[in-house]
Design a binder for these strands. Sequence first.
DNA 1: GTTGTGACTACCA
DNA 2: ATGGTAGCCACAA
Length: 103
Amino acid sequence: MVTSSLKEIIWQVVAAIPYGKVATYGQVAKLCGFPRHARYVGMTLRDLPNGSTLPWHRVVNAKGEIAFPRGSDAYTRQQTRLRAEGVVFKHDRLPLDLYRWAP
DNA sequence: GTTGTGACTACCA
DNA sequence: ATGGTAGCCACAA
């Protein structure tokens, strides 16, 4: 069976993001082979079950910020998870160096 | 089939 | 730098 849905590919790519690094939605989509599907990446992560082991928190938007509204629950949760991995926020933003991981 | 939506991005004033 | 707008495309109703 070769049901390879976009969801599954996205899951794999997100799962491949190294500890302590991050990727943008657009980059994840591109790595999947679908450069214009940044939004679908977000949709897919949103549908994740609660206890998923997928490191969804390592995915941020193109500005290097968390995609949720600042101060929201989801925002805080993601930021906490990232900090736990040693990721440092500067002015609510992530340094671009973190995006440079070899696929 | 059409319409509205979104954890996005690029472009422009 | 900051805010608004248009483009994007899979999905749900």
